[in-house]
Design a protein around this nucleic acid. Structure first.
Lengths: 112, 112
DNA sequence: CCGTATCCAAGTGGATACTG
DNA sequence: CAGTATCCACTTGGATACGG
């Protein structure tokens, strides 16, 4: 099957956790500060409530983020990085730098 | 649509490039040494020719890897990292480390 | 040896409408 | 405010068979 290397190979494991289309973006935003549901929605363009909910649930199930519910009216739910999520920041930094290099590459290609 | 941030945001751009299920693994193997088609196939468990071909083509189209054809009988095709691909290694390293931390986390959970 | 051509099954993102 | 419930369209990985 495909689970053979999950939990064994770091690359397979990481890739499985990062499959979500918005995972990286959410990790990035939460690395800056804890955010409420609505804040995330405003921070992420073109993303419906349903989709955001799914992504957040996946990430929470995987132990990447923590969901804290404040019992009040109106409801308040805050998302933050777990310990594992915080340790993800070196990856985030590396991806940001490489992503920008790739963008430069795209531009230079377009300008040819 | 969804292309709005491609080529603008480094995270969106990177995620698009790394979507392939085997992308990280292939990048890793090619970071160690150039490899022929068959070598890659042997290095990657449970992956059919057709799938490998698709992944390699995608990565080649994206400029991550380079496909070199040696005109001989029997045919020989070698894959290597492009310049952009080589600059990806910091990401690879960070992911490897974090992936291993996550694996430890999984084990500690299982042992509870 | 290194592919291509089809076709199919499954997974995921998203639209829309409704709720405590 | 922060979701849930359906349902659908599209993308992808993979199986199988054939070709230069």
């Amino acid at each position: 099957m495909e689970k053979d290397l999950y939990g064994i190979c770091p690359y397979v494991t990481a890739q499985k956790l990062l499959t979500g289309k918005w995972t990286l973006l959410i990790m990035y935003h939460l690395s800056l500060k804890n955010m409420r549901f609505n804040e995330l929605q405003r921070a992420l363009p073109s993303l419906t409530q349903a989709t955001l909910t799914k992504q957040l649930r996946m990430m929470s199930d995987n132990g990447l983020i923590i969901r804290t519910v404040y019992d009040q009216i109106p409801p308040k739910v805050e998302y933050s990085l777990s310990e594992l999520g915080k340790r993800f920041s070196p990856v985030l930094d590396a991806i940001q730098e490489w992503g920008n290099e790739y963008i430069d590459f795209l531009k230079s290609k377009a300008g040819t």
